[in-house]
């Protein structure tokens, strides 16, 4: 038996619904239709009255979730695409993210953002918004790269008393498979060494972990050993694991699918430089998407975001410095 990243997300939601009567799912087309990506397939039938179709009102969807959370429920919101969460931006960053700090009442909601690019999706169905949400205090931002993490981090997010932005990557939905669901997992907030190596640290998260692993494989043939750190969550950001890795390798390349200005890769570099400059044998480097909207055509799209090939090129350059 094998299970995909998408099936793991569905399974985690099914388990959360089964184990906690406070959990419900709210989003567009999530009910009988089972969601645009089928992440809630059959859940409305299995859990009557708890998987609820919403009007196309992202702002009101998240506001609704906050109100339900205040009253003690644990809503899971499915945004149809991460890109549409910008319509709910106010409720996310001003309502959900400030509630606990202002009033002392926790806000246990999970907002699932089908994130990242897939070929042919274009500017408005491809965005990676983790950096935007990580910028705001009061939010936890989770970026699973594996089937196991899609499952365990989603369950942990639902159990958390704070609002979680759960960035699940659409490119991984169908391709990424595991033999079974995990029975134990690293806790949320801990990064993972996805591949050990002595020469250079590649810090990545979400789909970029797999591009980084492929690049590491490519460079191994040339005699280089790349260490790949999977952040798992960008907020909290496990600086300790990153620093420990850089201490071993002396070189840092941060890879993110989001846009280059600011963002997760900039944050990682800033922390390593300000707290661990002496660990570095070469200037740390960042690799991000190009600073344009995300293109539609496969040729342009493939060149817009970092890939195993561009990571390998960047790593070779960095290894020469």
């Amino acid at each position: 038996m094998s299970i995909t990243y998408l099936e793991a997300i569905r399974a985690a939601q099914a388990r959360a619904l089964a184990e906690d009567p406070r959990v419900f799912i709210y989003g567009q087309d999530v009910g009988a239709f089972g969601g645009a990506f089928k992440a809630t397939k059959n859940l409305a039938r299995e859990f009557p009255g708890r998987v609820i179709d919403a009007p196309i009102s992202e702002d009101a969807i998240v506001g609704f979730a906050v109100g339900a959370a205040i009253e003690g429920l644990r809503p899971i919101v499915e945004m149809q695409f991460a890109d549409f969460s910008s319509v709910a931006f106010n409720q996310i960053v001003n309502q959900a993210a400030t509630l606990y700090w202002r009033t002392g009442v926790p806000c246990p909601i999970v907002i699932r953002l089908p994130s990242g690019g897939t070929s042919g999706s274009g500017p408005f169905h491809s965005q990676s918004l983790e950096a935007v949400y990580a910028h705001f205090p009061g939010l936890v931002v989770v970026t699973p790269a594996t089937v196991e993490d899609a499952y365990s981090l989603l369950l942990e997010s639902v159990a958390l008393d704070d609002p979680v932005i759960f960035c699940e990557h659409k490119f991984l939905y169908y391709h990424l498979k595991a033999d079974s669901l995990p029975t134990e997992a690293l806790p949320l907030g801990k990064a993972r060494i996805a591949r050990e190596g002595r020469d250079l640290t590649v810090v990545a998260y979400s789909a970029m972990v797999h591009e980084a692993l492929a690049a590491a494989e490519e460079l191994q043939a040339e005699g280089w050993e790349l260490e790949v750190v999977d952040l798992r969550s960008v907020k909290p950001l496990d600086t300790d694991t990153v620093m420990a890795s850089v201490a071993r390798t002396g070189r840092l390349l941060c890879v993110g699918e989001a846009w280059p200005w600011g963002g997760v890769t900039a944050e990682v570099v800033a922390r390593v430089v300000s707290e661990g400059l002496s660990l570095l044998d070469a200037p740390p480097q960042r690799l991000n998407a190009k600073d344009t909207p995300i293109p539609y055509h496969p040729n342009l799209w493939a060149a817009h975001r970092p890939t195993a090939r561009t990571i390998a090129v960047a790593a070779r350059q960095l290894l020469q410095l």
Binding site: F64, G67, A68, I70, E71, P75, N94, T98
Partner: peptide
């Protein structure tokens, strides 16, 4: 919060929770 109209959906969610 200061953003006008934003509390309506929050009331909706709270009412939904009671009904739930």
């Amino acid at each position: 919060i200061s953003h006008l109209g934003a509390m309506i959906a929050v009331v909706n969610g709270a009412l939904f929770a009671r009904r739930y």
